[in-house]
Design a binder for these strands. Sequence first.
DNA 1: TAGTGGTCTAGACCACTGA
DNA 2: CAGTGGTCTAGACCACTAA
Lengths: 237, 237
Amino acid sequence: MRDEAPRPLTAICNALQEQIAHGLLPQGGKLPAERKLSELFDTTRITLREALGQLEAQGLIYREERRGWFVSPPRLAYNPLIRSHFHAMVAEQGRVPATEVLGARLIPASVEICELLELPALSSVYQIRRARRVDGRLVLYVEHYLNPAYFPGIIDFDLTQSLTDLYSSEYGIHYGRVRFDMVPTALHPEAAAPLKVSAGSPALRITRINRDQHGRLIDCDLEYWRHDAIHVSVEVA
Amino acid sequence: MRDEAPRPLTAICNALQEQIAHGLLPQGGKLPAERKLSELFDTTRITLREALGQLEAQGLIYREERRGWFVSPPRLAYNPLIRSHFHAMVAEQGRVPATEVLGARLIPASVEICELLELPALSSVYQIRRARRVDGRLVLYVEHYLNPAYFPGIIDFDLTQSLTDLYSSEYGIHYGRVRFDMVPTALHPEAAAPLKVSAGSPALRITRINRDQHGRLIDCDLEYWRHDAIHVSVEVA
DNA sequence: TAGTGGTCTAGACCACTGA
DNA sequence: CAGTGGTCTAGACCACTAA
């Protein structure tokens, strides 16, 4: 390895990577202001932000809209083969889950939802919008769409709890077959706002289409995860 | 919806999105030069590149290092539960696969590889590095690490073909249990170069740890996919 | 060799956050 | 209200690609 003069961008990335790897910046800790950093590295804010963007893409740091840059906590393990809801999954990994309900209402199903749930045109569906936290950090925005035929009046319950539990205790419905679809993409404005990140941030969109114990399509979830918040594990026998 | 004056960045994104959605720019087609576009939208290259970066994050367009911006082709479906190798998977979806061998040699195993394959310290492993294309586009960089005890002399075969087939026909070994781990991240320089993209581009890293029919750890793959090239589907019974 | 993308400089204004 | 991040301007030089 020869010691070539590194480009400013690379130099900044390496320096910050090293500091983070050696724990000099605490997890969840805030980085200094962009102007401070650009001064420190003797460069412009444009270049500095380019470097921060690369570290963000790697999942080492993340942004909160207008609040600054922070060191990313460890990723959560997400296993689609294990039937476990959010709170249980998070708690099992020694982290602290939290859920916030953003809205719940009966709406006309969009074309996309009609197709996913195999509903006739102009159907109504329950839409539940929630934001979820791990250790206080907003990491997930979900839209649930439920076939109202199976869950009359569900939006009057406390929806901060697990829907899985509600299905079971109030409606006698349990999950059966599930289809997952995972796509690396960017957050659209409606998902970015509740997560308090800027639209266009990288994300992992996970679509779940759920059937019950009788094979009936009962609901689907559109999940938008911060791309640095999870890793997906699957074990195949 | 009121008609607020949209910010330049948003306006550029929307305009390009629309053009692409309506097929005015052909799939795989090249966008005009950045300077042309910035002139067209009456803005600077910095701002224009910001917009292109957002579309890239969404997976609508992609970059080839120093060659320009192109419209992304449709994503490939990747199903970890279906035991199928790259060429078969791609061909089944009506696309054209291609493989290029970048190198094959016996090397001392890194700490990471020792752990993944449960090898003692200072073990040797076969490393096979390959790049894969779909319809001519470079989409995947893979490093395979094989336990040499099970595959003596394998690097002297034609390695552009499927390893699965080689294992079976030459060594009588078949895949058994497999562990997948998927992480949205960015390409490091060693993975970016063979894919001819700039380091730091968003990517999906898929680690596979494979066992044979007797449950022995035989090899592992470190796959780096362009983030806009695939979507992962899993069906759970 | 002309034109392109990759990188960088040196500023600026605005909207919002947090004290 | 001071400071921050979000956005934008108007240039520049270099290394590389494609003709």
